[in-house]
Amino acid sequence: MLLSVLLMIACEEINPDLELLRKAKDGDREAFGELFRKYEKRVFRAARRMCGSDDEAWDITQDAFIRAMQAMDRFDTKYRFFTWIYRITTNLAINYSQKRMRRREVCFDEGFSAEGQQIVKDDLDDMAARDQLLRSIEKAVEKLTPALKAVFVLRVDQQLSYSEIAESLGIALGTVMSRLNRARGKVREEVGSMLGEWE
């Protein structure tokens, strides 16, 4: 008895959404809605970081949850929902970026618009320097290949652990490390000359 209780607690710890997932798999919309509300911001943010615009990020967010909902019956509850939804989001973001590239509308200088604007709080000098640095980082991230960008966003922006990233993207832990290092190297390369001012 005690063992089964402990096991249940352990399962819940490993997969905090287990109960919601079970209900959602049974078609409980409210449960799925709860999952949506729990992860909506993280998904949107990851999507926005990986794609080109707010509009795309909204589309990806909605699409990711729709796909999750439709595939829910195949989802294995021994996995964590958030790593799965990150995976779908990443896949969709890559799809969108492919489509965008096919339309040849890539524009590295697009920058953040509306809701994605950076916060600048300091005085004008600081503001200009920070703005410049952020643009530079943004440009560097935009230039990363989708595989590198996904790892970079999940680690640096979403602050996932290496093992969570590996689970989300379905890649080996070592691959996470090597991609992350390459991504960071490329970003540093781009930001390069500006680093001196901040070191």
Binding site: D54, Q118, I119, Q159, V187, R188, W198
Partner: peptide, 21 residues
């Protein structure tokens, strides 16, 4: 410098209003 790059980028994000969600 790496920390600075990453926190600057991370902190620059503003989440949209709940209404939109």
């Amino acid at each position: 410098s790496q920390e600075h790059i990453e926190t600057s980028w991370r902190d620059s994000f503003i989440s949209p209003d709940d209404d939109r969600f």
